[in-house]
Design a protein around this nucleic acid. Structure first.
Lengths: 148, 148
DNA sequence: TATTATATTATAATCTTTACAAATAGTGTA
DNA sequence: TACACTATTTGTAAAGATTATAATATAATA
C-alpha cells in the first residue's frame, strides 16, 4: 500500500468522521492534492480535473478547498502573488520559494516552539501556531543567471 | 525630535537619494504609515487620507506603496484575508496575529539565521530572506470568551 | 428504494489590484 | 522666476480571484 493511498484513505476517514460527504469531486481533488508536488492554486486544480469532470464548476473547487481547510486536511498558503496555494497536510515542514521562477520546495525543520513561547510571553497572546517561509533563488535559476 | 519625525525624514532622504519625487500624496502616505500602529490595507490608507486629499485616486495609493516597497521603505504582508497589509520598515520584528479579531502585534526576536542556513543547505537555494508569523488569541479576546 | 439534507453547477456579483491615457505638477536649469 | 522635461496623479476601465445565490442533482441512511 503506497503512501499516497494511505494519505487518501486517512483523509476519507477524516471526512467520514466529520460528517462530510464524499463526492467524486472531493475524492478527485484530494487525490490530486496528495500526489501533487507543486502546491497548486485553485485554478490549477480546476484545470487538472476538467478532463475527468468536464462539468465541474470552479466554485466546487473553492468550496471543497474551504471544507478541507476547516477539517484540517489542507493548508492554504498566501504568498505575495495573486492567488492562494493549497497544500495537503502531512508532516510539519516549511517552504523555500524561488523568487525568480516561483518554485516551492519543502524542507523539514524542528518546530520553532521557542519562538511561539517568546511571542506568547511578550504579547500575552494564547499562541496556536505559526507560519514561516524562506525566500531565495533555486539552483536552476542561479546557474542560468551565471551563463552569458 | 520625535521618533516619527526621524523616520519620516530618513524616508524622505531615501526617496531623494533614489531619485523618487516627493509629492504631497507620498508625504502623507508615508506619514500615515509611520504613525499608524495598525498595519493598514491600501484601502485603509485611501480612506484615512481622503479628508486631506479629496481627489486622490486609489491607484495613487497602490502605485506609491509599490514604489515604497521597491525602495525598501515598506513591507507588504500577505495573510489569509483578501487584501495586503503594509508595514513601514523599522527594525527587524515579527508579528503575532489574533485569529479572533485580526489584531496584529509586533514582537522582536533574533533573526532565524540558522533556519535560513539549513534551508539553503538542504535545498541548494541561495537564500535571501524569510517571513514568519505567529497566530493565536489576544488577551482581550481570550478574556471576553471567558465571560458568560 | 425513498427521503432528506447536502453538494454541485452555472452564473452573477464583489472585491482587490493593475493598466492606460490624458492632465497635472515636481525638479533642475537658464 | 520662468521653462522644459519627465515623473506622477487622476479617473476610469479592465483583469483576476473569490464568494454568493438559486436551481438542480446526488450521497447517505433507514
Amino acid at each position: 500500500m503506497s503512501h499516497e493511498h494511505n494519505h487518501l484513505q486517512e483523509a476519507l476517514d477524516t471526512l467520514k468522521a466529520t460528517g462530510v460527504r464524499i463526492t467524486p469531486q472531493r475524492h478527485a481533488i484530494l487525490e490530486f492534492l496528495i500526489q501533487s508536488m507543486t502546491h497548486p492554486t485553485a485554478d490549477d486544480i480546476y484545470k487538472a480535473l476538467e478532463g475527468k469532470f468536464p462539468n465541474m464548476s470552479v466554485a466546487t473547487v473553492y468550496n471543497n478547498l474551504r471544507v478541507f481547510r476547516e477539517v484540517g486536511l489542507v493548508k492554504e498558503l498566501t504568498y505575495g502573488d495573486a492567488s492562494s496555494r493549497f497544500d495537503f497536510v502531512t508532516t510539519d515542514h516549511y517552504h523555500v520559494i524561488c523568487e525568480e521562477c516561483g518554485k516551492i520546495v519543502d524542507f523539514h525543520y524542528p518546530g520553532l516552539d521557542e519562538v511561539e513561547q517568546l511571542a506568547s510571553h511578550v504579547t500575552g497572546f494564547k499562541v496556536s501556531h505559526h507560519r514561516m517561509e524562506v525566500y531565495g533563488t533555486c539552483p536552476e535559476c542561479t546557474s542560468s543567471k551565471e551563463v552569458h
